[in-house]
């Protein structure tokens, strides 16, 4: 079942705010489609990102889905979060 656009946008905004307050130094102009690795995401910061995603959304992204492509933008990460 596809999630409704408003719910997706809400999740994206929540994840973006987590990333900007705790994970990466990104400005207010940073978009949900901008590249997180170019903004400094690396194998150390992704550990905290994964933990924060679990805390905020109540579900863990399986290891099989962890790759550079899937984690390159906020939108793509949100698409991995199972719908509650």
């Amino acid at each position: 079942m596809a999630e409704n656009p408003a719910a997706i946008a809400e999740k994206e905004a929540k994840l973006l705010s987590i990333i900007s307050s705790d994970i990466l130094e990104i400005g207010p102009e940073f978009a949900v489609t901008d590249d997180l690795f170019e903004a400094g995401l690396d194998s150390m910061s992704i550990m905290r990102l994964l933990i924060q995603v679990e805390t905020a959304f109540g579900s863990r992204i399986p290891v099989a889905q962890v790759n550079r492509e899937n984690f390159s933008t906020v939108s793509k990460i949100v698409a991995l979060i199972p719908v509650a």
């Binding site: 550990m47 994964l50 290891v63 984690f71």
Partner: peptide, 29 residues
């Protein structure tokens, strides 16, 4: 390839489940 990111996933899961000390979140390979 993506092995480094997958390692990050393994380590962060182990920290959350209490199998590794939280200091392990500071590691990079």
């Amino acid at each position: 390839g993506d092995a480094r990111l997958k390692l990050a996933h393994l380590i962060s899961s182990a920290v959350t489940s209490g199998h590794l000390s939280s200091e392990a979140l500071g590691v990079a390979f």
